[in-house]
């Protein structure tokens, strides 16, 4: 009985095998190189979430869109799927490289390993990776590492939180407990303490990796924020991707304040109904980085290696939309200058 079933299942694989033998044996490295007529052909590989995640993938997309418009270039965007392996990421990058895309941008640190391998095989193609600089795995001569000083921006919104808080008690809701988000937390805590050394910072991560649903679960965000607000906080920083909307909703219900992340969340259409509680956002200008990178390639000014987008170059900043922090802006600027000048060193780990 079982034998028959197994044999029968062969048919399924048959289709695949037939396809293999019929079409097998194409060259691996054919078609590399650039588009030919001079115009750039950009390949962009997103991390999980992709275009439309209202977060850093989206930000990257904005940069791409801007570059597209400006330079009249062609672009293809690919996206990672949940739970995939490095091999799949590598394959994605290779497909782009094979397809003649140059430059290729990988969004997210998860591409670090795969990118290192692919870049070696395509020395003529220019690569960029967002959010990662790991010497040894992705530091080839044709790789630009675009990283951000999230802790610096977070420091400033921490300052804003401390200044705005009446209770001396503020909250931090992290989406998923990863080193990247811990950077946000470290900067934020430092910023708060810089203003009010005895202030309380409540910290909560919604989920633990590999459960990344913490970036997508507004209900959890709302519960966590409510807990903080009930415990006396009156400003909550939502470094939690899509779960942030729940944080803002809680703040709105309780008459508290929220701080957004990644983009200027005050202006996001999806958060229109809670925008009046968003006093500021820690803007991480992935779009600027992507645009700059494309421009550098377009201008034949590509530079490999780590490019840190920090406060100084406007890679991270605090948003002022809504005018909720106009009163404290001078103080913020003051801190900003101190960071830029190196007077204040912002820690990147907690």
């Amino acid at each position: 009985m079982l034998r028959k079933r197994g044999g029968a299942l062969a048919a399924i694989a048959m289709a695949g095998v037939l396809a293999l033998s019929a079409c097998g044996g194409g060259g691996e490295d054919s078609g590399a190189g650039s588009g030919g007529d001079g115009a750039l052909k950009i390949g962009l590989a997103y991390d999980i979430g992709g275009r439309g995640d209202q977060s850093f993938n989206d930000s990257a997309a904005r940069g791409l869109d801007k570059a597209k418009q400006e330079f009249g270039i062609e672009a293809t965007e690919l996206e990672a799927s949940q739970g995939e392996t490095d091999a799949q990421k590598e394959d994605r990058l290779r497909q782009l490289a094979e397809g003649g895309y140059n430059p290729i941008i990988a969004v997210g640190f998860a591409y670090a390993g795969p990118l290192g391998k692919v870049a070696k095989d395509y020395p003529d193609v220019k690569f960029a990776i967002i959010d990662d600089y790991t010497p040894g795995t992705d530091d080839g001569p044709n790789i630009a590492n675009l990283t951000f000083a999230e802790e610096q921006g977070s420091f400033l919104v921490g300052v804003a939180a401390a200044l705005k808080s009446k209770t001396g008690n503020v909250g931090f809701v992290g989406g998923v407990n990863t080193p990247l988000i811990q950077k946000f937390q470290a900067g934020y805590e430092a910023g708060v303490k810089a203003v009010k050394p005895d202030a309380t910072v409540q910290v909560k991560y919604l989920t633990q990796p590999p459960d990344f649903s913490g970036f997508n679960d507004p209900a959890k965000g709302e519960t966590a924020a409510n807990g903080m607000l009930d415990a006396g906080a009156d400003v909550v920083y939502a470094a939690a991707g899509g779960s942030g909307s729940g944080v803002f909703r809680a703040a709105k219900d309780k008459g508290a304040m929220g701080i957004g992340v990644d983009s200027d969340q005050y202006n996001l259409p999806s958060l229109a109904d809670v925008k009046d509680v968003i006093i500021t956002s820690m803007v991480k200008s992935v779009d600027v980085a992507v645009y700059d990178f494309i421009k550098s390639v377009n201008d034949n000014a590509f530079k490999a290696g780590n490019k840190i987008y920090d406060l100084e170059v406007g890679g991270v900043k605090y948003a002022t939309s809504g005018g909720k922090i106009d009163d404290i802006q001078p103080r913020l600027e003051e801190y900003k200058q101190k960071i830029i000048s190196g007077e204040i060193k912002v820690p990147s780990t907690t």
Binding site: F109, T147, N177, L180, K183, N306
Partner: peptide
């Protein structure tokens, strides 16, 4: 796993990496 994957316990971090 999240508990153990901590520099204080079984994990190591590489400077600059977000992994």
């Amino acid at each position: 796993v999240a508990f153990l994957l901590n520099p204080d316990r079984l994990a190591v971090t590489v400077a600059g990496s977000n992994n």
